[in-house]
Amino acid sequence: MEEEVIKKFLYVNRKAPYGTIYALESLEVVLIGAAFDQDVSLAFIDDGVYQLKKDQQTSVDSGIGVKDFSRTYRALEGYDVEKLYVDRKSMEERGLSEDDLLVDVQVFDEAQMAELMEQQDVVLSF
């Protein structure tokens, strides 16, 4: 058995949900990756912040005919993925505040976010 090495993984999410497949793909990779017991963080920058907006209403049967995967972010805690960071400027310039988000996050300024990126072993961009 190889010795287990825990690496720091950061998923950087910069796209709004639904318009492209990036957000959902990222989330699926996070869920699959969670099986490997790594040190996982998620960053939400630019339109990526919109992924966490409360009250998304979709269903396979009505509306846009797509699963409401925003609810899956609330399952991440059960997968031991608990480090979610939101870029303050991206959030504020979109007129959003933490109260508009469906999960607990830490709001980071540029310096904190840049430092977070520097600390990683692997950065995955979506």
């Binding site: 699963k67 899956t72 609330r74 059960g78």
Partner: peptide
């Protein structure tokens, strides 16, 4: 219904 996914076995066991 709550999370829109089927949980991984590890997550299921814990939950």
């Amino acid at each position: 219904n709550e999370y829109q996914i089927a949980p991984a076995v590890r997550v299921l066991t814990k939950a």
